[in-house]
Design a protein around this nucleic acid. Sequence first.
DNA 1: CTGCGAAACGGGGTAAAGTCCGCTTAGGCT
DNA 2: AGCCTAAGCGGACTTTACCCCGTTTCGCAG
Lengths: 233, 233
Amino acid sequence: MDPFLVPFGTPRPERADAVRNREHLLRTAREMIAAEGVDKVTMDGLAERAGLGKGTVFRRFGTRAGIFRALLDADERRFQEQVLSGPPPLGPGAEPVERLIAYGRARTAFLLDHQAIARAGLDRNRPVPASGASLTQLHLRMLLLQAAPMPHLDAVTVQLTAALEGPLVLYLSRPEGEAPLDPGAAGFFGDAWQTLIERLVHGPQAAPARDSRHDSRHDNGHDSRRGDRKGAP
Amino acid sequence: MDPFLVPFGTPRPERADAVRNREHLLRTAREMIAAEGVDKVTMDGLAERAGLGKGTVFRRFGTRAGIFRALLDADERRFQEQVLSGPPPLGPGAEPVERLIAYGRARTAFLLDHQAIARAGLDRNRPVPASGASLTQLHLRMLLLQAAPMPHLDAVTVQLTAALEGPLVLYLSRPEGEAPLDPGAAGFFGDAWQTLIERLVHGPQAAPARDSRHDSRHDNGHDSRRGDRKGAP
DNA sequence: CTGCGAAACGGGGTAAAGTCCGCTTAGGCT
DNA sequence: AGCCTAAGCGGACTTTACCCCGTTTCGCAG
């Protein structure tokens, strides 16, 4: 009976029933989202449909937004893996600039794919660092440091993080009316990001950012046509 | 008698009592905010304290966030005036690059000043363009076009808007616990913005060397992150 | 001054998030 | 196996944004 075997650091393992319930809730939430959309998912509704008490739902996720964050987490982890140990240029091995550009494109596509849930994971009255954003921040900081050391690096990193994640999570989301945002937008913002990065690193003389020949599997249909103006509502 | 005198375009003037009540509500709201902070302002509380019905409050502002947007509006308009017809470099007359930089600094300071209210004006489930952001977008677009024409201008503009406004309304706000964000942050993000713009326009060879007390190659006196259980592997 | 239609008002009603606390149960210990 | 306690559970309760609709008021025309 030595209580010092695990003095700190391991808060305690999670009880089996708790795990079971969490997974059941997550599964149920996914069903409800697929069936009726994110904002038809209410805490009472979820609890009832899962056959559990409302208190349990809150105990597991803390807040409504917490559910969506948990839902996103699995995919986020997969994305993270691609970045940390996948093939270049997204993963390690390519030049920093290439990686910056690849990261921006991949992240844009990711956010577009997960737009509804990512948005629902936001929490009025809490800052954003919803795990995803902070990875972006860390990663951008590292690559920027290598690719183009500059003054005020930390603040610039925060701003570029916002530039990358802000538009898709915040500025352009459709309220709930159908139109889940033209999928071409991914390529569109990806191209813009590339322009931004290339100019940051090489200056304006760099060749125009056409021809994104980044051809990993994240390339969900960018049949983007140029020349359209009007960027946002 | 002639209903075609004002056929369209002028929905109708606002009734005198309506105006009076709106102003009274705004005044009351300001008092409550000053006394107890933004999130102690509830619709019922405001209505009661103003001696009006709850329905009236909603009729005037539509939604809770609407109140804060209305509150911000006056200051926002004043800011807008400085930009559109104040003295350079913020107002017209200076070089586009100068104006871009000045705008970023001024906007940063503005947002920092109005952080609490701006944040409260956000509306879960509606995109952001809360009037303020769209002015930023328009203005940035115009100046960018003059200062450094580039491909994908519209999307880049959206991203830069996010870079400018995102950090202060989203990524860095204090939940409600005191610490209203170090006022030095204004200069900090202003400097970062300047770096960003100068590199976008001139490339990395440009010598920054500007005012401001930050001049190291990469400073780091910046809040990185708070208690984050099990950080990223 | 009087009548009238549209706008504004009031406040009770609903739905959904989040809190509390007494009861139940998993799972380590003896 | 039986105990014991912290973790987990449920659901009533509270708070708040937001809706609805019968009633009141404004302000214009005659």
